[in-house]
């Protein structure tokens, strides 16, 4: 990506309408992330962390402000353009894994590849590689319900990286996991960043998880700031 930032948010605001009331959630966010960075976005529940992630992924639109991701100005894009943009540039990792229950691990991982012009053989190779990276090769034929939470999340990460996207967005990926599985996932994310140079934006309110990132940002009352000391203390390890 060179010097141009992968993610650039400028004066982004977002309010939700609740009945007749406008509820401001983001009051002017500026954020710049360059290629190869691993950013943890923290903040109390309801502070708008997921909203920021959704805006960057183009699955939600800001009330005002500019959002540029991987060189695209998201404001000007149609739903279909945004879908193509996500397919090419974004790998999404959810708190609840969100695998398709009727598909096996490898079929789930193959899903994003269906949108590419790759042949069936090429798709199988990519899937094998991705499953290898997350260490799930022996569970390829398992259905999600036959996997543990940690294994499901690893399959979901394989699905997120299989197209080699520009940016990985992870929204509380360890929120539903026990400590051991959570550590596995965080180690995996760190390895993806360190070994494969993946740019990662990790949303979490777990300071220990944030400790795996290179940079930490704190979202509170609609604005981004530095980590409060209480968080920073527990996050450094």
């Amino acid at each position: 990506m060179g010097t141009s930032p992968v993610v650039s948010l400028r004066h982004v605001t977002k309010s939700f309408r609740r009945d007749t009331l406008e509820v401001p959630v983001l009051r002017g966010i500026d954020l710049e992330t360059s290629g190869g960075d691993f950013v943890a976005l923290m903040g109390p529940s309801g502070s708008g962390k997921s909203t920021v992630l959704n805006l960057i992924a183009g699955i939600d639109r800001p009330t005002s402000g500019d959002i540029r991701v991987a060189g695209s100005d998201l404001a000007s894009m149609s739903e279909t353009d945004l879908a193509a943009f996500r397919s090419r540039h974004i790998g999404f990792i959810f708190q609840m894994y969100n695998l398709i229950p009727v598909l096996t691990a490898e079929e789930n991982v193959a899903l994003p590849l269906l949108l590419t012009p790759l042949s069936g053989k090429e798709r199988r190779e990519h899937v094998r590689t991705a499953l290898g990276v997350v260490g799930l090769t022996d569970r390829a034929k398992h259905f999600p319900r036959q996997l543990s939470g940690g294994q499901e999340q690893r399959a979901a990460i394989a699905r997120a990286i299989v197209t080699d996207p520009t940016l990985l967005l992870a929204d509380e990926p360890t929120g539903d996991l026990d400590a051991t599985s959570a550590t596995e996932i965080l180690e995996l994310l760190r390895r993806l960043n360190a070994e494969y140079g993946k740019t990662i934006l990790l949303v979490t309110h777990d300071p220990r998880a944030a400790g795996y990132a290179r940079t930490r940002r704190f979202l509170d009352k609609g604005v981004l700031g530095e980590m409060p000391a209480s968080y920073a203390a527990s996050a450094s390890r």
Binding site: A84, R86, R88, I90, L115
Partner: peptide, 8 residues
């Protein structure tokens, strides 16, 4: 989820 993965 499919749409978040980039399905048009």
């Amino acid at each position: 989820v499919l749409r978040a993965l980039g399905f048009p």
